[in-house]
Nucleic acid binder design. Structure first.
Lengths: 221, 221
DNA sequence: TAGATTGTTAATCGATTAACAATC
DNA sequence: TAGATTGTTAATCGATTAACAATC
């Protein structure tokens, strides 16, 4: 174990490991090697060993990693060995889908309140929750020790909502709106905007493009 | 302009540029510098200039970039100057949300068919589309020149659906299921699984952790 | 002209991978 | 013991950033 700073790339792989380890556990596999993990997750085995070694000596030479033990360790590293409360703001289609999709079933992150600025939406029930008006957001966050905010409002409202969440003391934000949010450095923001993923995917479509024909306009065919 | 290979990191930033440029265009801003872009998008201006320069000399020294011209160029690079047809498989909450969320309104990617394996779901209407049974997927993809597949089925079914999409001739997949899909190298797959984003976010929550207390178990407080 | 800003080279920084001693 | 596999160092690879000549 070392005391280096952990890079974002490493942290982003931890949930991927955890997910597959949970899978192995369900299938009653008790031990796994970095080799096998790498094969399944399309990652270099050395990278996996290095990632894990940042946090401790979790493996055994000649044997591999104990699945249950590694699950426990990664869950601890990710703060998932405690319940993490979250709020969701914006009950459009996506917001409703996420509210129903209960993260809590798999890991310890639980959406415990949902909000919407639209009075026509407030008071309605989504899953087990009642949609609350924005006026109540600060009080709810403080009262229930809510640490993560999930933003699923239209892009023009996203920054405003983020500001309110931060003001109320939230620590981290998962942002589905297609904008870059501004926030103090101590607030962690992850972009979950899939339009970026989708549009960049289009780049890789093969249009019979020829690298050497940069200036040639091949409109037809 | 150079003929180097374009890295994935560069491609992923292009939609981000495009998004903000569209914004500027709407606000009738006609010119923008890499400096301003960097400020708004939290990116290094040199990086933005370098990214764009891979594809051409789009800027003017001393002036900056013409917003409309750059939009046009990036849209061309991303293949968005033509309609790209997509299918969506899996009409659960998320699938429905994405079907309603019409990408087509902003850019040229259009979901033109939706599928579900569940007979109780087929025949129902989502937005303007009728949910079709999986049996029709291959024919529909071929008939309508569908190039992108969006997977929103449960994780255990995702690989199977991916195989069917690939078999039918799809070129790229946006995968929302929390699994690593296996596919031939010529098929582009982007992971859009937000549980990974959410769980990695939890890592950054401050639990009064102390880097130097690696082995000390501070359970309380 | 003077000020601004690009495109690009060189320098830096960081992340991935290979290799291997240690050891189960 | 022999085979397997870790943890870690060193080598490689790639991406970001700084700096600046070119030029609008």
């Amino acid at each position: 174990m070392k005391s280096e700073k952990i890079s974002e790339a490493v942290v982003r792989r931890l949930p991927v490991y955890l997910r597959y380890l949970n899978d192995l556990h369900k299938r009653e596999v008790s031990t796994v090697s970095s080799q096998e993990l790498g094969l399944k997750l399309d990652l270099n085995p050395a990278q996996i060993r290095k990632d894990l070694a940042y946090f401790g000596d979790f493996g055994r030479k000649g044997i591999g990693y104990d699945v249950s033990y590694l699950i426990e360790k990664i869950r601890h590293i990710l703060n998932l060995d405690q319940q993490i409360n979250a709020v969701l703001v914006g009950t459009g289609n996506l917001g409703q889908a996420l509210s129903n999709y209960n993260f809590y079933l798999r890991e310890n992150i639980k959406i415990i309140a949902v909000f919407d600025a639209n009075p026509k939406k407030t008071g309605k029930q989504i899953s087990t929750l009642i949609v609350q008006p924005m006026e109540e957001i600060s009080e709810t966050i403080k009262k229930h020790n809510i640490r993560i905010g999930i933003i699923t409002v239209p892009d023009v409202e996203a920054q405003n909502v983020a500001d309110q969440l931060i003001e109320a003391g939230i620590e981290a934000i998962l942002n589905f709106a297609p904008v870059i949010l501004k926030a103090p450095a101590n607030i962690r923001i992850h972009a979950a905007d899939f339009t970026t993923d989708l549009l960049s995917l289009a780049y890789y479509l093969d249009n019979g493009k020829d690298d050497s024909a940069d200036d040639g306009e091949l409109e037809d065919k």
